[in-house]
Design a protein around this nucleic acid. Structure first.
Length: 755
DNA sequence: TGTGAAATAATTTTT
DNA sequence: TTATTTCACA
């Protein structure tokens, strides 16, 4: 293995193979290269591939890593585990989960299944889903699981808080129901593995002696549960190498615990720390900007990126009139780059905070004839027809899965109505068994009409036949059989015929669905023919697992197109030219983070900004608007604090001459106070009214020169507000119940309000 | 079981 | 604004 091409830090990270190692890898510092070289180096030193475990977060990263290792290493890498947390845990659980009382052919529930199950639980507990939003409940439960809290512990923690202990009750029931359905959710995959290890030391011992060298990528994104999982495996030999960048931790809201990386040195003794600070991606200007912005965060490990590319274009900032103009500016600039500077469309990426921002940008690109790929949106596996089909497959694999059963028992319609389903459900929960077993014994059920019984028996026969077929047919054939024998395809074809001449789009919709189902068959065929060692077993269960653990739609990524995506999605990618759009308070940082009482929320937004900036190799554009229409309301926009945090020498404002407002640090402090005070109070209007009433009499008319940043003023029409920015005679005022407005103080009578 | 009006909410999403 | 969901009624 030739290590000469590595820089000294990279080399140290590779060569230190024994004991705990923490690699703090800044953006673009050659992290993946270090990781793959390290694996190659281990094998060079005589370590068996089977003794290596490399964990990533995404399938994409895992595949990439395996490919690159295979390129560099001669020996067979089949026995080396390079996989995501989740698929690694599934692999372990499929073998031994029966030891903790679960069925080995468990199914994996995705977010939508979780919602359905939670709704069922709420119903059973007689809790309205208005008071307890299923999604919110799930996020609490998921949070509890990320912290390895059992329903019982959670309940204890919540003692005294009626609302939270209700959630604990739901959690408890939810967990029971999962088990009864032989189902695990994504979080369970991790925590059940931890549980398995805890209760069966011999299983843990096996994996401990097997995985003598462990590597974890994107360590800043690990949750408490994932941390524990790794710790269990690494205790003993302690040959654990974690790689991450605390500055790029942007998934806190998903349970990632930044403390895992910040406190790694406390958790393991004698940690060898390596900082990779040389960046091979961006110009120094871009890095200076990124460094400067991120230095505003308190909670972080110090680190400063530098580059040998000292030259570099300044960061261009554009202020557009509104979001349509913003899009137009981007489209025009890209066309210039392509036609004038020989760039390719694929060199450019447009990043935004929220998917909703994509629309006007798409619009502008379309108008200008700029080709683009958009990432995000509805996933392939989330489409109705695909979910229906998967539900059938799940029932075939695991009839205990009530959620899937309910989904398809009457799809296509076969006359099993809601009332009947309810009766079956009641009976099932009474007998504490699955709905399917109630169906098997339906004839002995006196509550069900003869007609319904007939339908149900037909359904049971259908599923029974398919279950028998499963044993002898490959997955793709089984799927065809399902689509055929259930009449699913037939129904869609009928739908097409019916709407052949109508313009309501239903014809196309049905056609689309059939196409998707065919696409799914191709995926199954691909699975059957793949020689991926994770998928050596070609059973239906393995197929379903691989589908559950893959979210990526088989996107048709056309070459040479501009990329449109959120900043979250852009993590790990790089582009010569990057546009970050919507640099406005409330959008980025997003208002919820501003309103939040936790400073850490703003810090996470700032890290996201850091991620966005460091995607750019050569040129970076930041755009914002004067007025933005959001949710049908047009508001005066305020420049994002992250713009103010950029060093002056790095930026070039393209909008000079347009009405420019100056924002200082104190503008944002005032704004924060204002936002927290009024947006969070339940009766914001009342507060404002009260203030109006009490202050009015004591107000003094303000001379224009009296009005300063932070002044509290009274406007005859808009009421009380606070000055957040000024430029010439233009003042931006945050009104307590009229939002933010820009006003000319020379022409408006403003009163100064006494505090 | 299906339609349409009315209400309602509106980040980010590696698995 | 828009997408989704709910509820009333046929």
């Amino acid at each position: 293995m030739n290590l000469d091409t590595l820089n000294p830090s990279q080399r140290r990270a590779v060569e230190r193979t024994e004991g705990p190692v923490l690699i703090l890898a800044g953006a673009g510092s050659g992290k993946t290269r270090v990781l793959t070289t390290r694996i190659a180096h281990l094998i060079d030193k005589g370590v068996q591939p089977a003794n290596i475990l490399a964990i990533t977060f995404t399938n994409k990263a895992a595949n990439e890593m395996r490919e690159r290792v295979e390129e560099t290493v001669e020996s067979d890498t089949k026995d080396m585990w390079i996989s995501t947390f989740h698929s690694c845990c599934v692999r372990i659980l499929r073998k031994d989960i029966n030891k903790i009382g679960y069925n080995r052919s468990f199914v994996i529930y995705d977010a939508a299944d979780q919602v359905t199950l939670i709704k069922d639980c709420l119903k059973e507990l007689n809790i309205s889903d208005k008071a307890f939003e299923p999604k919110t409940v799930i996020s609490y439960i998921s949070g509890a699981k990320d912290k390895l809290k059992s329903p019982k512990q959670y309940k204890d923690d919540c003692a005294g808080d009626p609302r939270m202990s209700k959630i604990a009750d739901i959690y408890s029931l939810y967990q029971d129901r999962l088990k009864r359905n032989s189902a695990l959710d994504f979080d369970d995959l991790i925590i059940k593995t931890v549980e398995l290890f805890k209760k069966n030391p011999e299983v843990l011992d096996y994996y401990r002696s097997r995985f003598r060298y462990i590597m974890v990528d994107e360590y800043q994104d690990t949750s408490m549960a994932q941390y524990e999982f790794i710790k269990q495996l690494a205790m003993g030999h302690k040959n654990i190498c974690v790689v991450g960048d605390d500055d790029q931790s942007i998934y806190g809201w998903r349970g990632a615990d930044i403390r895992n990386i910040l406190e790694f040195e406390k958790d393991y003794d004698d940690v060898f720390v390596v900082k990779l600070e040389q960046n091979y991606r961006s110009t120094q200007v871009i890095l200076d900007a990124a460094n400067h912005v991120i230095s505003n965060n308190i909670e972080r490990k110090r680190k400063k990126l530098w580059s040998e590319k000292t030259e570099g274009e300044k960061i261009k900032i554009e202020l557009a009139e509104n979001e349509l103009e913003e899009g137009r500016f981007i489209a025009e600039t890209i066309i210039d780059k392509v036609q004038g500077e020989g760039r390719k469309y694929s060199d450019c990426a447009v990043l935004y905070r929220a998917n909703a921002q994509a629309r006007p940008i798409e619009d502008a690109l379309n108008r200008a004839g700029v080709p683009y790929n958009i990432y995000g949106g509805t996933k392939f596996y989330e489409r109705k027809e695909i979910k229906d089909l998967i539900a059938y497959l799940r029932i075939i694999a695991n009839p205990q899965d009530d959620i899937s059963l309910k989904r398809i028992i009457n799809v296509p319609r076969r006359g099993i109505g809601l009332r009947t389903i309810e009766k079956i459900e009641d009976r099932a929960s009474l007998k504490q068994e699955s709905m399917y077993s109630v169906l098997l014994d339906i004839d002995s059920n006196s509550e069900i009409s003869t007609k319904a019984k007939k339908q149900i028996n037909g359904f049971v026969d259908l599923v029974g036949t398919l279950r028998a077929i499963k044993e002898v047919y490959p997955v793709s054939k089984l799927i065809e059989k399902v689509l055929d024998s259930t009449g699913y395809i037939y129904e869609l074809e009928e739908e097409m015929k019916k709407n052949q001449n109508s313009m309501n789009g239903k014809y196309e919709e049905a056609q689309d669905r059939i196409d998707n189902l065919n696409e799914f068959i191709s995926i199954a065929l691909e699975f059957e023919n793949s020689d991926d060692e994770n998928l050596e077993d070609k059973s239906l269960e393995t197929f379903l697992t691989s589908v559950a653990l893959t979210s990526e739609a088989t996107e048709d990524e056309e070459p040479n197109r501009v990329s449109l995506m959120t900043m979250h999605t852009s993590k790990g990618l790089e582009f010569p030219v990057v546009f970050i759009t919507g640099m406005e308070e409330g959008l980025f940082p997003i208002s919820r983070a501003i309103k939040s009482m936790k400073d850490s929320d703003i810090e996470e937004e700032r890290r996201l900004c850091y991620v966005g900036i460091t995607r750019a190799r050569e040129e970076l554009y930041l755009t914002m608007t004067e007025k933005r229409t959001l949710y049908g309301k047009t508001n005066h926009a305020i420049q994002s604090r992250f713009i103010e945090e950029l060093p002056d020498e790095c930026i070039e404002k393209l909008y000079m001459g347009k009405r420019e407002l100056t924002y200082t640090k104190s503008s944002y402090n005032i704004l924060d106070k204002y936002t927290k005070k009024y947006m969070n109070s339940m009766n914001r209007e009342e507060v404002a009214k009260k203030m109006n009433a009490t202050n009015k009499n004591e107000n003094t008319m303000a001379e224009p020169e009296d009005i300063k940043l932070g002044s509290k003023v009274y406007h005859p029409k808009f009421g009380v507000g606070t000055v957040v920015a000024m430029a010439g005679s233009d003042v931006t005022i945050a009104f307590e119940n009229q939002g933010i407005k820009k006003i000319n103080k020379e022409y408006t009578t403003l009163d100064l309000v006494k505090e």
